[in-house]
Nucleic acid binder design. Sequence first.
DNA 1: GCCCAGGTGGGTA
DNA 2: TACCCACATGGG
Length: 219
Amino acid sequence: MLKEKLLNIYHRLFDCYGPQHWWPAEEPFEVMVGAVLTQSAAWTNVEKAIGNLRGAGALSPEALRRLPLSELAALIYPSGYYNAKSRKLKALADYLGGYQDDLDRLFAVGTCQLRRELLGVHGIGEETADSILLYAAGHPVFVVDAYTRRILNRAGLAPERDRYADYQGLFMENLPVDTGLFNEYHALLVCLGKNVCRRRPLCQQCCLNDDFCHFVEAS
DNA sequence: GCCCAGGTGGGTA
DNA sequence: TACCCACATGGG
């Protein structure tokens, strides 16, 4: 029942919005940087920050390690929380140094161990770790973000406990464990979240007025 | 001027 | 474990 609902929602979203081609980045390291910078920030601001990094030739672990903290903060200024995020990017770059910046080697680490390691890095929490696992490393883990929670709650499919792992389990225990599916599904949820009730949380009123019902409640 | 965006870490009870 | 708060820019 739940399996069918989740798959139904996915197919409706895909039919409406089409493939999302996530993550919007040119290479895995850019995905990792973007995953940190997008924390509680609008993606348009993140794009500016990444553009600054690229323009400064700072879009590599080695360059980030070499760059003074204050200069890094200045480059990522548009993404907000620039002091906090510059420290986070330094921590990420330091961590990658332990793998000689060899991302292929890093991504070859088992999913569970890699996730534990990522969570041990300052500034990488569950969503950021999973975004890196899925969109940079290609491991089949489902990413849970604010949109995912809101939409699931609105659909009456909220798990018993309001915790990251419980939302994640809902998808991973009821869908085929498939990187491509998880990639597209999460991207489509974000797309729906941005297109519906953009200026406010999903609510009773908007459910009556927008196309949210079309995707979720009718599933 | 106010609200919010693809969160996380640290402190406190 | 469960809250609370700091962290900050830019678009609607």
